[in-house]
Each structure stands twice: as C-alpha cells, then as structure tokens.
Computed example of a mutant assay.
Amino acid sequence: MSVGAVTIVSHPSLDLLYEGITEALADAGYVEGENLEMSLENPQGDQATLASIANTFAASDKEYFVAIATPPAQALAQVITDRPIVFASVTDPAAAGLVDSMDAPGGNITGTSDQLPTDQQLQVLTEIDPSVKTVGIVYSSAEVNAQVQAEAAVEAGRQLGIEVLTATVTNSSEVQQAAESLDVDAYFVLVDNTVVSAMESMVQVAEQHHRLLVASDADSVERGAAAALATDYEAQGRQTGEMLVRIIEGADPADMPVELQESLELVINPDAAEAMGVTIPDAVVKKADETL
C-alpha cells in the first residue's frame, strides 16, 4: 500500500501530526518498510513547489494521500479527484472549499479540523493580563484558515471589549516587521503555519516591547510564548490516521464527517511571561494543565 503525504512547513506541531498519523497506521498493522510505502513532501511554504508536489502525486500510482494543513489539502484537492485524501489541521474545511459541509463532505476528501474557541483563547489572555485593551494578530494572507480565525478573533474581541488589530504577511520572513507595525498591548498567534514557523520573531518583539504573547499550540509555549489554550497535535494526528485506516478498510470519505478534537489543554510558561514583563496570576497557574 502506498500513501503520499505533504505538509506545508517544518514546525513542531505539524511534525507531531505526522508522527501521530504514522503511529495510528502502525497500530492498525500498516508499517512503513513492511506493508506500507509512505512518502512525506515539504515545500517549506513555497506555493509553486507545493503545486508541483501535488501534480507529481496526481500522476503517481499512490493509492491514498494525506495533507497536513490547509494549503496542501487545497493543492491536492485541485488535482486529485479519483483517490481518497485525508487532511489534518484544517481549521475550516468548508470555507477552504474542501468539503460540502463538516457533517457530509460529499467528495473524496475528509479529515480532522483544529478549530479552537477563539473567545476562550482571548479570555485566557485577559485573565493573564486584565489591563489589555488592544490585541495584535499577524496572519498569513495565503492561508484561508488564518483569515477565518482572524475574523473570528475580531468578533470575539468585540464581545470581550477588546480591539483586535491585524497585519498580514505572505511568508515567515515578514512576521517580525508585521508584529512591529502593530501598536497593541498584547499579541495573539492563531493556528497559522507561516507565523508559527517564525514564532521566535514574535517572541523577540513581545519581549522587546514588554507585550504579552499568547499562542494557539503548546509547542509555541515551549518556544517562548507565555501561554496557549491548545490542541494536542499528536492526538489529532492519531485521530487523522485512524480515519485513514477506516478508508483503507472500505469507508467512503464522502460520508465521513470532519472530526474535531474535543480535548483542549492550557499550557503556560511563567518564565516566558516574566521576560515580557508580565506575571501570570496564581488563579491561571492553578488551572493550567501544564506549566513549563
């Protein structure tokens, strides 16, 4: 059996997704090098390279495909209609044009979504620093999932009495300058592969200007963000792999609802917060699932 997989960039959350997928396949008896040929491609954020990878996969004799993140899912869906595609970490697959609906995908593609409750994420930010009145979001204009999240954050901020300001980038090299352009009290990083791949730039700006930085994945907290209400990406990868197993065993992706991960974890990094001039309150520390 052969599977073609493609991610969008290298960063820990996406790497964990792939690990979880291969673990789920192995648990079901599909082991790479034995009865499974698994190839992973990575365009490192370059759209032209991504399109080339998709076309190469379409012309291949691979039986199944895995797309990690929204741009790879869109690239594969555009050129492969005759074989199953399973995606992981696509925030809004309907808005991305991948499925008819979350409940009834209707085609040859389904998978898992990393949709997160933006209002709860911003609530965590305000619990850490109640003085925050403006929040800055840098997001990739090339990722529809990021645009959807940014719009949701603007509305959630309005409900919480917070003004959310945004700046867009086209690649990771622009992230630092975009963050510097926002005159805000704090930063919030979405599930945005381009920005997450440049998390160190966001952390640097936050520390220099003494602004709180909250992210949407646990790995970013390890890399210097103060906190995150996040998805367990390895668990989501396993969930994605289990969906692929069901398809291999005869299930039709058209009838398989897109799955969400129900469990979220609050991860905090008090030392990172201190570097930003912020002290995480005891009440937040006590309810954290993990403290780094």
Rank of each mutant, 00 (worst) to 15 (best):
A227C: 09
A227K: 02
A227R: 01
A228I: 06
L229C: 07
L229H: 12
L229R: 09
L229M: 08
A230L: 02
A230M: 04
A230D: 05
T231F: 09
D232Q: 05
D232M: 10
D232K: 05
Y233D: 03
Y233V: 10
Y233H: 13
E234C: 01
E234Y: 15
E234V: 04
A235C: 06
A235S: 14
A235Q: 11
A235I: 04
Q236T: 02
Q236F: 03
Q236E: 15
G237I: 03
G237V: 03
G237C: 08
G237E: 02
R238F: 07
Q239D: 11
T240E: 11
T240C: 06
T240W: 04
G241S: 06
G241Q: 03
G241D: 07
G241M: 00
E242R: 15
E242I: 08
M243L: 15
M243K: 06
M243A: 11
M243F: 04
V245D: 00
V245W: 14
V245E: 04
R246E: 15
I247T: 09
I247A: 12
I247F: 12
I248E: 12
I248C: 03
E249F: 05
E249L: 02
G250A: 08
G250C: 07
G250M: 03
G250D: 05
A251E: 14
A251I: 00
A251N: 10
P253F: 02
P253H: 07
A254G: 13
A254N: 11
A254K: 02
A254I: 04
A254Y: 10
D255H: 07
D255N: 14
M256L: 15
M256K: 04
M256C: 05
P257C: 12
P257W: 05
P257N: 12
V258E: 06
V258A: 10
V258K: 13
V258I: 11
E259S: 15
E259F: 01
E259T: 14
Q261D: 14
Q261T: 15
E262D: 14
E262R: 13
E262C: 03
E262M: 09
E262N: 13
E262T: 13
S263G: 00
S263M: 00
S263H: 10
L264P: 09
L264C: 11
E265N: 13
E265P: 06
E265C: 00
E265V: 11
E265S: 14
L266I: 07
L266F: 01
L266D: 04
V267Q: 01
V267A: 07
V267M: 00
V267Y: 01
I268P: 00
P270H: 04
P270R: 02
D271C: 02
A272E: 04
A272W: 04
A273L: 03
E274Q: 13
E274F: 04
E274W: 02
A275M: 09
A275W: 06
A275P: 00
A275N: 10
M276R: 10
M276Q: 11
M276C: 06
M276T: 00
M276H: 01
M276V: 06
M276A: 08
G277M: 04
G277R: 10
G277W: 10
V278I: 11
V278S: 01
T279C: 00
T279A: 13
I280M: 09
I280Q: 07
I280C: 05
I280H: 09
I280N: 06
P281E: 13
P281V: 05
P281F: 12
P281C: 10
D282E: 14
D282S: 14
D282Q: 14
D282H: 02
A283E: 15
A283L: 05
V284H: 09
V285H: 00
V285E: 05
